[in-house]
């Protein structure tokens, strides 16, 4: 099925949920509200002739610098592919800044768990009903979400774990093994 046709059928099935449709480089993406995202994904996965059964990519985007309506501050992009039919499709669920929260896609794809954790870790969107929502790439006590646009490239300050380590090194320096006593302070 043509991706545009999928978009149309999706709009029929979930009226009012679709905000916009855009095409770039022959890839169709549909901007949707976040409320019924899991239902939509399940529908896309299970409906005959659509069967988008492969979740290729799930990632969060911070829209701060391109916030024309209907875009909101954050979005989660789901790139889907149908191995059965060979068509691809994308959903972009909008997530507002005040309440960065969306339902987890794990009931539909178990494999969404880790990309969602990554999205939570780096962009700061939390996923409701996620089985194990923890930071994944960054340490558990990391401050902030690096892929947000206000987060500077170099970060704010050193990670506490690293400063702790430096302190520890200083503390243990007197016990350091030094083969040449003349060089010892």
């Amino acid at each position: 099925m043509e991706p545009m046709a999928i978009g149309k059928r999706l709009a029929e099935e979930f009226p009012g949920e679709i905000l916009d449709t855009c095409v770039h480089a022959a890839q169709v993406s549909v901007i949707v509200r976040r409320q019924r995202i899991v239902e939509m994904l399940a529908w896309l996965k299970r409906t005959d002739k659509i069967r988008l059964n492969h979740l290729m990519c799930l990632c969060g985007v911070d829209n701060r610098d391109r916030m024309q309506p209907p875009l909101q501050r954050f979005e989660v992009a789901y790139s889907l592919y149908s191995i059965t039919h060979g068509h691809e499709f994308r959903l972009r669920a909008q997530v507002p800044e005040e309440d960065p929260r969306i339902d987890s896609a794990t009931p539909v794809w178990k494999g969404a768990a880790w990309p969602e954790r990554e999205c939570y870790d780096l962009v700061g969107i939390s996923f409701a009903n996620h089985p194990d929502l923890r930071r994944i790439l960054l340490p558990d006590d990391w401050q902030g979400h690096p892929l947000r646009k206000e987060y500077p490239l170099k970060g704010h300050d050193e990670w506490s774990g690293f400063t702790d380590l430096l302190h520890k090194v200083e503390e243990l320096r007197p016990f350091d093994f030094n083969p040449n006593p003349a060089l010892r302070k």
Partner: peptide, 26 residues
């Protein structure tokens, strides 16, 4: 996979790498 968002500047607005190893370890 590479997911690119372009805002018209010469740099990617957002680049996401869908790395198979990440998913596989998951």
């Amino acid at each position: 996979g590479f997911y690119f968002v372009s805002d018209g500047s010469g740099r990617p607005y957002r680049m996401h790498i869908r790395s198979p190893s990440f998913i596989h370890i998951g």
